[in-house]
Amino acid sequence: MRTRSLILLILALFFCLSLFFQLTLERARGEALSRPPFLYLPTGRYIKVLSLGYQNLAADILYLWSIQRYSRYEGEHRFRYLEHVYDMITDLDPHYIDPYLIGALTMAREGSDYERAFKLLQKGMRNNPDEWILPLDAGFYALMDLKDYSKAIDYFMRASKIEGCPPEVDRLIAGAFLRKGDKVASLKFWLDIYDSASNERIKEVSYNHIYDLKIAIDLEVLQKAINHYKEKKGKFPTSLSALVREGFLKGIPVDPDGKNYEYDRNSGKVSAASEYRLRH
């Protein structure tokens, strides 16, 4: 009995000792974490060879590890090897979509490195041409973060051509065209959305956009013709019908409610009689 108690005591003592070593090690490692740990990480090509056919598992392990690493807001050099890490994961498993999305998200939103985020998403698009989520994601960064509307339109258009892409992407394209300043292209997309609307709510929203865009485009056309008239004749036209009579316009448009546009011959300004439904 005494021997047994002695063994238990020694056991407890050594367990405490191992705990002490473990805790000391953890503290030491904590300090080591502030140093860049990826300096010797090989490329995905080499890991693929070393994985002996288990490259999917290797990609999963690296991906899980990257999520744990980048979910912590510590470390001075957190983003230095971000591209390398996600390149490695996507080299190991090029069809694994999540790392492209999460890698791009971390690069763009956390590391403010949009160039690399687009590079990663483009790699994903090359490896997975049937995945609409990748160009859609790239389009979002271009639209929302960079305000690069041409780039956003390119990506959204690419996504919309892929089977299974939600039809809502057309609304994003229409919105991006409007922000870019191309009201005519935006109107074309809203007309298509209106024609193919699957419910009343979409029909109503798209009609409101069409309504406002029609007024905005008409006012621009009329104002341009008035200014042209002023340049040629040295004075503003007496009425809008004078523009048609003298060949500056083919016809006078009316707003979507069928009302005529109002014209002030003194200031040469044209305005809508109807109110905008949204604000363009």
Binding site: G53, Y54, N56, L57, A59, D60, Y63, L64, I67, Q68, Y96, I97, D98, L101, I102
Partner: peptide
Amino acid sequence: IASLLTVGEESKIIIDVGLSAISF
């Protein structure tokens, strides 16, 4: 349990680990 650590498709982790375990 490992699949809970991921962001995105959890089934993929289970399938990868499972197939690798069976193969190994």
